[in-house]
């Protein structure tokens, strides 16, 4: 089957790629770009472990064919840390013990980033809505909420 040409900007870097007709954005990120921070937990859009940001929106990368997002800008968990250090969200997740096994963490961070990018002062309910598609079996979510609240404050300051 002929491959399709797509161009993606991932974490600020442009990539020209050839993708299969059944290739999901998740596959491209993990297998072609070797960015394995994005996790596959259910493959059906229910767990959010594969969440990345596509053109400013949190998206389950298992629910999108890569060819559908040709030309898009994508951010993965690997795009959070910069030369100036950890992103406020990452710092807050460490500070608030919002990480246990860490498998849901990349997806949580992406959903939280999409929220704070559009809503820098979210209410607790808005944080919950932003993260409702990210399942976590370890933390019981409380410390994740605490972390997002802390990041929002730090970021705004």
């Amino acid at each position: 089957m002929a491959k399709l040409d797509v161009e993606l900007t991932v974490n600020g870097e442009k990539h020209k790629l050839k993708v299969g007709s059944q290739e999901r954005l998740l596959d491209t990120i993990r297998e072609q770009l070797k960015l394995t921070g994005t996790k596959e937990g259910c493959s059906v859009g229910e767990c959010g472990a594969c969440t990345v940001i596509v053109d400013d929106q949190a998206v389950n990368s298992c629910m999108v064919l890569t060819a559908q997002v040709d030309g898009s800008e994508i951010i993965t968990v690997e795009g959070l840390e910069s030369k100036s250090g950890l992103h406020p969200l990452q710092k807050a997740f460490i500070e608030k013990q919002a990480v246990q096994c860490g498998f849901c963490t990349p997806g949580m961070l992406m959903s939280a980033l999409a929220l704070l990018n559009t809503n820098p002062e979210p209410s607790k309910e808005e944080i919950k809505t932003a993260l409702e598609g990210n399942l976590c079996r370890c933390t019981g979510y409380q410390q994740i909420i605490d972390a997002v609240e802390m990041a929002a404050e730090e970021w705004g300051a």
Partner: peptide
């Protein structure tokens, strides 16, 4: 419906 990620798509 669904979740934020689902509603976005």
């Amino acid at each position: 419906i669904g979740s934020t990620q689902i509603r976005n798509r």
